[in-house]
Design a protein around this nucleic acid. Structure first.
Lengths: 136, 136
DNA sequence: TTATCATATTAGCATATATTCATATGTTAT
DNA sequence: ATAACATATGAATATATGCTAATATGATAA
């Protein structure tokens, strides 16, 4: 066992002496409760899948039924239904039934703007210049 | 073989007759190239992890070194370094070395606003006041 | 009722990914 | 040079998650 006397109390996670206790403590105080950031992570995780983001983009253009989405994405129906279920549970999409057909649509406009601002963000010349000036 | 004459050409993925060919075709035309949406999904995926989102949130408050982050998140150093590497590869964070210490910070302000608008969206009182002071 | 259709669900498989342990790299001080 | 330190990397493991096949559910029409 190594005895390093100068260590901060809660740290056996990092075998280094903490460099900036003040920074760590200040940030820790301001940090949202784990649950909030966890919810946020789960929300982004939902958007972080090729299938789901295509579904969301499609629904941002038009309400669609499951079968439409299958055709659009050229995917099998259970796969699409599975993703729709996740999106619905997270209240990102909503559905209405009309006979045998179930129509899905975005639950609110926030998602639509998130998608578009996301595409804008990536649409810019990512690899050249950024990091300097703040843009409007 | 079942012969369903009314079927759209590309569909053997969904065993139903497409309900709204017009909608599907219109949306398909407008759909961004797969690569764009894939990049967007990958970007969101990066934010969709509890560890990474906490790192990003922390860096939105202050530049920090690896060891600071380990202490803050109470995680082991290789795990943190691994996530930092992913974030850096995606140009979400940047780093600068100062002696033995490597400091990480957000690469641009876009991320910061994304985080905050995300927290807003989930309907949390973000910074204003979060349940009285939690001390550690 | 039975048949057909659109969607949902379940189980199993396969891949992806986050973490850990051990070790390597790069830096500073002695 | 060697030692100590901060961080990075690699291999192995474990868990999570998306897809498929088969089947179930719910709705409409004959």
């Amino acid at each position: 066992m190594k005895a390093d006397p100068i260590r901060l109390k809660m740290v056996d996670t990092c075998d280094a002496k903490i460099i900036h206790c003040d920074v760590v403590q200040r940030v820790k105080k301001k940090m949202p409760f784990g649950h909030d950031l966890e919810n946020l992570a789960n929300f982004f995780k939902l958007l972080g899948d090729f299938t789901r983001i295509r579904i969301l983009w499609a629904l941002s253009e038009s309400e669609m039924c499951v079968c439409d989405i299958c055709a659009l994405l050229e995917m099998k129906q259970p796969a699409v239904s599975h993703q729709l279920k996740m999106l619905k549970q997270a209240r990102v999409v909503q559905s209405r039934r009309e006979g045998k057909v179930v129509y899905y649509s975005l639950d609110d406009d926030h998602i639509r703007s998130l998608l578009h601002s996301g595409l804008d963000h990536l649409g810019e010349p990512v690899h050249s210049e950024k990091r300097c000036h703040a843009e409007r």
